[in-house]
């Protein structure tokens, strides 16, 4: 076992896959010389050279579009959209070119590629560098979307994403880049489409993504101190969604809280709530609680950010409402 940070997990996954497969390569804004704005790709230029790791102009549409063309020609590109908010610029390439490549060619072509992007609020990055964009992309057939919350999952999910035969968006939470964890030294994978039960419990199910998993775990500690046992599920993959694990948990606990960073309306939580409502309605002992970012653009100053994001206390209170209903 070795202790590595979340950002080092990105480096490890890329390094392992680039050593294995010469078709895997990395490009984007400042990913090479600078090692990425969060240092998540540090050291890769030195090991693999400027042909396989290179910087591009500030052109998100061309970065993702070029990845589609290279992927259709047999390469396995990994591109970085520095901040997930910049997805807006690359949206056409992701939605109209990458996600539809297999379908519109009747399977003759495909776009096996990975789009990594940093997302998430918490630090003072402002309204256009902090959004959680999973819900923008969840409505696109052909895409796969993962949101690792631990260094282990970054390694395992990013490696699975690189080997996927179809385009995968990997959402890396920027609050977590420094988070450390012991991971095995031998090669491992995390399958796409499988949630992780981070903490077993009986009284309430809390489903969370990314940075909110940590807050849900802290909330579970607080709930335990008050005599309540919360089961915390890390969705890990939002598309496809592991409905089975979530529904299985709710059939035991009878209560559900969903927590994510994006606004509640039209968010990931709505899809989880709908799945549980459809498949576990008879087991629900309380209304489903959904927590997400406030219905406002993401603010700059810390006081407002703290107001924006669901807090540990918000999660505790939502769980208590569900338990006492």
């Amino acid at each position: 076992m070795t202790t590595i940070a979340y950002r080092e997990a990105v480096q490890r996954a890329l390094r392992e896959e680039m050593r294995r497969d010469p078709a895997v390569f990395l490009f984007g804004e400042d990913v090479a010389e600078a090692g990425g704005v969060f240092k998540a790709t540090k050291g890769l230029l030195e090991e693999f050279g400027p042909t396989r790791v290179f910087d591009t102009p500030i052109s998100e549409s061309a970065i993702v579009g070029a990845a589609v063309g290279a992927a259709m020609m047999g390469m396995r590109p990994v591109v970085e959209v520095m901040f997930a908010d910049f997805t807006t610029i690359a949206m056409d390439a992701i939605v109209n070119s990458a996600a539809k490549a297999r379908f519109l060619s009747g399977g003759e072509f495909s776009a096996p590629m990975v789009v990594r992007m940093s997302y998430g609020a918490g630090a003072r990055w402002g309204a256009q560098h902090t959004q959680s964009v999973e819900a923008w992309l969840m409505n696109v057939p052909g895409l796969t979307i993962v949101m690792p919350s631990t260094p282990y999952d970054v390694v395992g999910l990013l490696k699975s994403a690189i080997r996927s035969p179809d385009p995968v968006v990997v959402l890396e939470n920027k609050q977590l880049y420094g988070k450390k964890e012991d991971v095995p030294d031998e090669e491992f994978f995390v399958p796409i489409g499988k949630a992780a039960v981070r903490r077993p419990g009986q009284d309430v199910t809390i489903v969370a993504t990314g940075y909110m998993v940590d807050r849900a775990l802290s909330a579970a500690d607080a709930l335990a101190a008050g005599g309540h046992s919360a089961e915390v599920i890390d969705a890990r993959s939002v598309l496809p969604l592991d409905v089975e694990t979530i529904v299985g948990s709710v059939t035991r606990t009878g209560r559900l809280v969903v927590v994510h960073e994006a606004p509640v309306f039209g968010g990931f939580g709505a899809e989880v709530a709908a799945a549980v409502g459809a498949q576990a309605f008879g087991y629900l002992a309380a209304p489903i609680e959904r927590l997400g970012g406030a219905w406002s653009p993401i603010p700059f100053g810390q006081v407002l950010i703290d107001e924006y994001l669901p807090s540990e206390q918000d999660i505790v209170q939502a769980a208590q409402r569900a338990i006492s209903a």
Binding site: V64, G65, A67, V68, G69, A70, M72, M73, P77, A93
Partner: peptide, 12 residues
């Protein structure tokens, strides 16, 4: 939209 895609094929 095909322009960057064609550039990507050339890149490969």
């Amino acid at each position: 939209s095909s322009i960057p895609v064609a550039a990507g094929a050339a890149l490969a």
